[in-house]
């Protein structure tokens, strides 16, 4: 079983549309949406949810004003700036800044602080027309999205083993922070989808450095390459210098957006298009790799 992760560094290069189109041409794959912050793959795959699970993402503190004597100890010790002074005097916790370390609760001389487990995040195992899909929904402003990514990837692997799937296809998050790191560790192959903009090139460079530290092989895609031929050439040269095989260059076409508006993958919406046959080609090259 081989785990393939689609990443980009920069957001908006076309990762999710690409992943969905790849799912349509792949055989015997489990699909997993690692972009838990802003998950979109479900808009094209229309999963039917079979099971739902709550993900406990840590806890949030709160101060009981009846017990609090306004000593300010929690305020001075909280390193996240989550204890804030109220306009009317006294202190309260800003739940959006609280990282659930429980230090305030432990040191409060009045036992005025308690913490509650957050249950704003859920994850799902679903069926789609291309196979089983594991995905998640995060509450607004939540933490520990990296841990949620690890959770759903672990479940996707278990399912892949159970049903003897040959592949897992992960739709990755943008960036190089905690969710990208959690998407990378232990994956077998990264497909890097970039675009010919200065930002696209710069972000791909930082991502490649991160991928290198995990010693994972990378294949490159230049999406919308004809929006700027000059920068596209620069990216091609950059891939070559870094010994990253160029899997394909995909031209810009509004058909991607039209397919998306219809809730279909490109391969379904325009099955006879050159891009659909290119997607089949790309999949064949990925499995040969």
């Amino acid at each position: 079983m081989k785990e393939i992760t689609i990443l980009s560094g920069k957001g908006g290069t076309g990762k999710t549309s690409f992943t969905a189109a790849l799912s349509a041409v792949a055989q015997n794959a489990v699909l997993c949406d690692n972009d838990v912050d802003a998950a979109d793959l479900h808009l094209l795959l229309h999963p039917k949810i079979n099971s739902e699970q709550v993900f406990e993402s840590g806890c949030t503190a709160s101060i009981n004003p009846d017990k609090c004597i306004n000593c300010g100890l929690c305020y001075s010790k909280c390193r996240f700036g989550a204890v804030v002074q109220k306009d009317v005097g006294g202190y309260e916790i800003n739940p959006f800044l609280c990282e659930g370390c429980k230090l305030c609760q432990r040191i409060c001389p009045q036992q005025a602080i308690s913490t509650e487990i957050k249950t704003n995040n859920s994850w799902f195992v679903s069926s789609t027309r291309f196979g089983t899909m594991v995905h998640a929904v995060m509450g607004p402003g939540e933490e520990n999205s990296g841990r949620l990514v690890s959770k759903i990837r672990t479940r996707a692997k278990e399912i892949a083993k159970e049903i003897e799937a040959d592949f897992i296809i992960n739709d990755g998050p943008p960036g190089i922070g905690c969710t990208a790191i959690s998407s990378l560790s232990g994956t077998n192959l990264v497909v890097l989808v970039t675009e010919p903009t200065k930002s696209g090139l710069s972000d791909a460079g930082r991502l490649i450095e991160l991928i290198r530290s995990f010693k994972i092989p990378v294949l490159g895609i230049i999406n919308k390459y004809d929006l700027n031929d000059k920068i596209s050439d620069e990216i091609e040269a950059f891939f070559e210098q870094n010994h990253i095989p160029l899997l394909a260059k995909i031209r810009f076409d509004k058909v991607w957006v039209e397919a998306l508006v219809q809730g279909q993958t490109l391969v379904e919406y325009a099955p006879d298009s050159d891009i659909a046959s290119l997607m089949k080609n790309i999949w064949n090259k990925i499995i040969e790799n």
């Binding site: 957001g11 912050d37 802003a38 959006f96 990282e99 402003g141 939540e142 933490e143 943008p174 922070g177």
Partner: peptide
């Protein structure tokens, strides 16, 4: 991008 703690 996103909606998690770094955006907050």
């Amino acid at each position: 991008p996103g909606t998690s703690c770094s955006v907050v």
